[in-house]
Amino acid sequence: MSPVFDSRQFAEDTAQLAPQHGWRTHALNAVDGFPRPWFHLPAAEAQPLRLYISAGIHGDEPASSYAARELLRHTDQFVGIEVFLFPLLNPAGMARGSRENAHDIDLNRDYLNPVSAEVSGHLAVLRELPPCHAYLHLHEDWEAQGAYLYALRRDDIPNATDTLLAAMAEHLPIEQATLIDDFEAEGGVIARPYPLPPRDDWPEPYYFEDQHGAYHGYTLETPSSLELPQRIAAHLSAAHALANFLREHRAVFLR
């Protein structure tokens, strides 16, 4: 595919933007000459809620990274929440507009026994982070006609699925297919079992469930066929909605 994304300029822009809005700038290992910044937004509370957000793991899903960049401007949406934001996990793939990295590895299948430098470096940082109360993974789907999500949570954790769908529906239609990527779906939701079934090509959520057990996560998918601003807006709206959801259920999540 032809390049659709300037990864170096994106990294420079986000690194300059973040401190203007109270974020602390960090760096994953550079890969193939591409920097990979990530950002931490501290919270003033002694016991903060914690939210993890990742984007740009597939290089043909630009709305995810653009939305993550916009989140840097929206610190007012994260009052009382400590946020860990990884907006550019696969800069080489983003630069060439391909799902995989420059070595044709799907990074979102590499979290069990990583062979990619990108995932190895990501895991080195993740091992130092505290468990989060919610995880949000921003993605796109070239085959979908509407937005949808994968949801994984224990029965004793409040369910943000309807909240996230409603937020995305403000900007995009919701996918109505009953089979998505060989998973049964209903009303734009693929409900994943807890615990997740074994597999030998771990996506990112598998790592968190394995490490923390109490993984409470959502993978958002926006339809690549629709306009880019709509897709960005849907991701932004959902991230804001999840932050509000965490605050509304603060007592439950912090018990």
Rank of each mutant, 00 (worst) to 15 (best):
L172D: 02
P35F: 12
L72I: 11
G146D: 05
N90K: 08
N101E: 09
S237K: 09
A95K: 09
H240D: 13
L112N: 06
M94T: 07
P223N: 15
L112A: 10
A239Q: 04
I190C: 07
W142N: 06
A46D: 13
G213L: 15
P114Q: 13
A18E: 09
Y135M: 00
L136S: 03
A234W: 00
H212T: 08
F34W: 13
G56T: 10
L123E: 04
D32W: 10
Q77M: 05
R154Y: 08
D76Y: 13
M1D: 10
A44L: 15
D141Y: 01
S237N: 14
A68F: 00
G97A: 05
F78K: 02
N29Y: 08
A239C: 15
M168C: 10
T25H: 12
L254A: 02
L226D: 04
S120T: 13
T178K: 03
L51K: 03
P130M: 01
R73T: 12
E248Y: 05
P158K: 09
L254E: 03
A15Y: 03
H122M: 14
R154D: 07
R73M: 12
I180H: 11
F253K: 00
I105N: 06
Y150S: 00
P62G: 06
E45L: 11
A134S: 03
S7D: 02
R96Y: 11
A11G: 12
A251V: 06
Y111S: 08
L123P: 01
N101I: 13
N159L: 11
H26F: 15
P130D: 00
H171L: 08
H212Y: 14
F5S: 10
L107C: 06
E12H: 11
R192Q: 14
V79D: 14
W38P: 02
M1Q: 12
N244R: 04
D60W: 11
P35Y: 14
P193W: 03
L226N: 06
I81M: 08
H103V: 10
A44H: 13
E70D: 14
D13F: 09
E227G: 06
Q47R: 15
F208L: 10
Y194T: 02
V119G: 03
Q230I: 03
L51H: 04
Y206N: 00
E227H: 08
I81H: 07
D210A: 15
F245I: 08
Q176A: 11
T75H: 15
N29E: 07
L246V: 05
V115T: 15
I53L: 14
P37T: 06
A11Q: 12
D6C: 01
Q176W: 07
A160Q: 06
N113M: 09
L254T: 03
G187P: 05
L107W: 02
D32L: 10
L254C: 04
G213N: 10
P35D: 13
W23G: 12
E170P: 02
E184D: 09
H249V: 01
F253G: 02
H26E: 14
S2K: 10
G217T: 10
N244G: 03
N101T: 12
L112F: 13
R255A: 07
Y215F: 14
R69F: 06
N244P: 00
H240S: 15
E221S: 15
G97W: 05
L49T: 12
R73E: 11
V189E: 02
A15F: 02
S224D: 07
D210K: 15
A167S: 13
P19E: 12
H58Q: 14
Y194P: 00
L126T: 00
P91Q: 12
Q211M: 15
